[in-house]
Design a protein around this nucleic acid. Sequence first.
DNA 1: GTTCCTGCAAAATTTTTGCATCAGT
DNA 2: ACTGATGCAAAAATTTTGCAGGAAC
Lengths: 145, 145
Amino acid sequence: METWAESALVRLRNVSGRSGGARRLVVQLLGRQDCCLSAQEIHDRVHAGGARVGIASVYRALDGLDELGLVQRVDLGDGISRFERADPGGDHHHHLVCDDCGKVEPFEDPALEAAIVSVAGGRGYDVAAHDVVLRGACGDCRPAP
Amino acid sequence: METWAESALVRLRNVSGRSGGARRLVVQLLGRQDCCLSAQEIHDRVHAGGARVGIASVYRALDGLDELGLVQRVDLGDGISRFERADPGGDHHHHLVCDDCGKVEPFEDPALEAAIVSVAGGRGYDVAAHDVVLRGACGDCRPAP
DNA sequence: GTTCCTGCAAAATTTTTGCATCAGT
DNA sequence: ACTGATGCAAAAATTTTGCAGGAAC
């Protein structure tokens, strides 16, 4: 189950020749997450684990991972960048955000993916990444029926 | 063709009782745009028109418009918030961003909209807004075929 | 030993807030 | 006149950069 983290570390080493402590901690944390985290959240959780990691190193690690396509940057519309691991296998989800309680939940939908591929092709684009965010009231926060 | 701007100003006045100069300029500018603008771009263009408008007023105007659902906030993934008018009639587009040249172009796709509605319904969400961003290489920047 | 990563601090950017003043009703 | 919007400046929050020191090779 740690395959993403392992392969990410290997790829980082192939590029730079190193893989220091901060990067490894960030990669391992992201490998354990099911959904996106902000840089601040990553920093806090790594600190909670007892490590002395600077926020700048978190950003630098995320930047390197993003360049290699190992993480996907997710913008939920609140001005904060979040990151989650990008599975090379194509497993891949998007996000529902509740405007009331702030809850974020992932979803996948083949019809949505198909529509995106079709749009991209029709416009002559070679789409490398795509991001879908739905905002609204979740079942719990919606005015009771 | 100025119906959006007019109705937006009316709705702002209904809420606050006023519609001062800065808000009117921002609304009128957005009414003339076909795609999203950043707060800084709005500020610059309003200034170019000869008006003395503070950037804070631009943000405040956008904030008020967003609360009323009159503009949609768009995150293109570069950490800058952009805004565009939200047509109540349902006319509604998304964005293709070229990673190479930075070009942004709008698109619409009924199949995509249908898939989104279907996902939202299946998850019990009452979706008020949704945002789709596709990133990749546009026809011009793509390695020549 | 060399090279790149790391942590801290400072800078840059984007967005928000405080406050005196101005403008719309 | 009253009330809220506005502009300027300062603050806050997020992200980037500089640099000395340390860790991996």
